[in-house]
Design a protein around this nucleic acid. Structure first.
Lengths: 204, 204
DNA sequence: TTCTAAATTTGAGTCAATTCAAATTGTGGA
DNA sequence: TCCACAATTTGAATTGACTCAAATTTAGAA
């Protein structure tokens, strides 16, 4: 039996994540009590703290799962981007946004973002930061791809432009999750509008 | 005596803010206990909760004071901006950044930002969001001013560009406060680099 | 198989934020 | 001036996240 200890660990961890997921969705983040999560996961409270530094960390772990899917979806778009700069960028950012609310509510995003800024050095705070970096890199990769395809000028700083596009989208996404009444359509329109001038400037 | 009640309120509130300010700075946000803040402010714990929804709200109120100063400093730059697009924008953003750490530590910023995303609807959460909006508006105002001065092309969407510049700076500022080891110099260089392409594109 | 030590789990106890019913204080009218 | 009522303050009690010393479980050596 190569590693009962390791097996148990994986097992317990997934039970914790599952229980927390359910409760966060059902009761909201604040409403979900650690004791209840522990009871559902059939572990003790102490064990949860053995796996996660604190409550926020559990949430950030769940968000990470979602972001991994977002990254995978983005990869497909980069492989075959629309043959038009504006539409290519819009397609990638739209894919990010559409995927972001599949499993997570706005409230869960708010809490996760809050935790990751509050505790940037906790294990999952780092994970979150790294994922953000990956997403930014992916945006840059799209710009590079469009340069290869001859759709974007080669004499511009693709990295700088990619980061700027990603950063401003990210900020607008934060505004979006802060406002419970803001629709996805509105967010997407704002993003397109904000990018327009830059997109025009970099188009070949 | 036109309003002893109103007078007391102002009095108590400023004692609370002062006490909290001191303690946040001395003990850090987590380290400052509400009981201690109450004791120093010579009010009871309950009164603090009468004035602020929770601990984070107190901090956000303090941060708001600082942001008001940042706005005032920005106003001066808009009145007499450097006669060069890149330097004008750099001057404004630099002023934001320089002023931001005068009274507040990175830790305080982290906590304040976390609280304001966590509770966008609490009174001070709203205040914070409004201030962010004001700062963005100010950046847009600079672009408009530069258009008036004939330094920026008139055929671009000044509002869209201004928001984009502000948003991406804001995101980089968040990265900056998350990383205790990141220097202001580095932040400013990143911002300049990221803005370069856009600045070139909008220059008249 | 048996035993020891290291790794892991456990949950009662601690700690600090937050609440809320009772007590106090300010206001405006008689 | 005095009173009744509304606004505000108070702090003991509640709540729930988090800790840590004792108990349990696993690894692997003999």
């Amino acid at each position: 039996m190569a590693g009962l200890r390791a097996k148990n660990r994986i097992d317990r961890n997934s039970r914790i994540v599952e229980a927390a997921s359910d409760l966060f969705r059902k009761e909201g983040y604040e409403g979900a009590r650690i004791e209840e999560i522990a009871a559902r996961a059939e572990v003790s409270v102490g064990t949860i703290y053995n796996y996660y530094r604190n409550k926020g960390d559990i949430l950030v772990a769940i968000v990470s799962l979602e972001v991994h899917e977002v990254l995978a979806a983005g990869q497909k778009i980069i492989q075959k981007p629309p043959r038009n700069v504006e539409r290519a960028i819009d397609a990638l950012l739209a894919s990010y946004i559409e995927h972001s609310l599949v499993y997570l509510s706005k409230e869960m995003w708010r809490q996760a973002m809050a935790t990751s800024t509050q505790q940037p050095d906790s294990p999952f705070g780092k994970t979150y930061t790294a994922l953000d970096r990956d997403l930014a890199d992916q945006t840059c990769a799209l710009i590079a791809k469009l340069q290869e395809l001859g759709l974007v000028r080669r004499d511009i700083d693709g990295r700088g432009v990619g980061e700027m596009i990603f950063n401003s989208m990210n900020m607008m996404f934060i505004e979006f999750i802060k406002r419970e009444d803001m629709a996805m359509r509105e967010l997407r329109a704002n993003i397109r509008r904000q990018n327009r001038t830059l997109v025009k400037a970099i188009s070949a």
